[in-house]
Write a protein that binds this DNA or RNA. Structure first.
Lengths: 194, 194
DNA sequence: GTCTATAGGTGGATAGAC
DNA sequence: GTCTATCCACCTATAGAC
């Protein structure tokens, strides 16, 4: 317990590696980068994560479980489907505002060069993410709060993809303002005019 | 002239580098990879492109001009806004079907680690791409062929982002089928029920 | 225009002392 | 758990012969 208060070295390594992976990608940072930030040597980092693939896999696992926690928080805080949807989009916007990108979106771009263990966990993240959105869209349409044509699953997939893409493009063109504008369009397609 | 028939070495290098950049990214391939594919040495590749940044910049320039050519082709082939929009989306689908990703979407994920010359050309690609879509959406709504609420520019930005994101996510989860489903949702939001 | 050879740097990873 | 020292593979890039 109290894990977030006195973070052990392994956790600090994950924090540093995660921030880097979200900005320059898995292949964009080295053990030396992480070690330097924590005033350690690369050998010490290897003690906690023998191979970089171990570090990468753990990174995705932790990110996924925290992401699912955030989704559970939304359900606890908001009851209206439209409010939940807005809160969901806000998660992404906060990441962009922090000059990062979704860890899993970033890693998806490196998919072909990723260790198998990381690939599997990546697929898991998107599956669970889309499943949650699908349930939200299904319930939201049933209650008349949300409106869209067609399959909830396809619509959820399109929303997740669109948000990931908006983060991606914002890096090269438009930045946060561009992300916000795109996000508003997506919300408008589901919530409709107010 | 006849440049596409008897491709010179520089062009062949660009072809090989482009395919790799679209799958494993700019930092994911080396001069040795490209040289090996063409049965050359790295020194020969350096003769044509002294630094990798030169190769990368040329890659984006060529990709952008070919992309704009494809857009001009759409205007020549189709007159209805909905047909043009479908043809535009089809460009992206063809790339996914070839197990590639948009070169510029891929490079956007590496933005922070890219040479300045490449960053500038990346922004140029997205600006011109979005400008074309904005014009299409504007004309399409004016003629009653397309329908959407809000700013054409924001809607165009959202569409480009969504397509890039669908390519990205498809790599890690769902593949071509996932891309197609997401693309249909996006088209449906602009063209409406048939 | 292409080659051989090589420099100089950085990457992940390990052995063994403390 | 952390260190020093080191290995080996790979990468970008260059000099100079052909």
């Amino acid at each position: 317990m109290a894990a977030r208060l006195a973070a052990d070295t392994a956790e600090q390594i994950l924090d540093a590696a995660e921030r880097r992976a979200q900005t320059v990608g898995y292949h964009g940072f080295s053990y030396a980068d992480v070690a330097g930030e924590l005033s350690l040597t690369t050998a010490s980092v290897h003690y906690h994560f023998p191979a970089k693939a171990d570090l990468g896999a753990r990174l995705i696992e932790r990110y996924t479980s925290r992401f699912l926690e955030a989704l559970a928080d939304i359900e606890a805080r908001a009851s209206a489907a439209s409010d939940r949807l807005r809160a969901y989009v806000q998660i992404y916007e906060d990441v962009v505002a922090a000059n990062r990108m979704c860890l899993c979106g970033m890693l998806a771009s490196e998919y072909e060069t990723l260790p198998v263990a990381m690939r599997e966990r990546l697929g898991d993240f998107f599956a669970k993410n889309e499943a949650w959105v699908t349930a939200l869209l299904t319930a939201g349409r049933a209650s008349g709060e949300l409106s869209y044509a067609g399959d909830p699953k396809a619509t959820a997939s399109a929303l997740v993809s669109a948000l990931e893409g908006a983060m991606l493009v914002a890096k090269a063109h438009g930045g946060l303002a561009s992300f916000k504008a795109a996000a508003q369009v997506m919300l408008g397609n589901l919530i409709g005019p107010r």
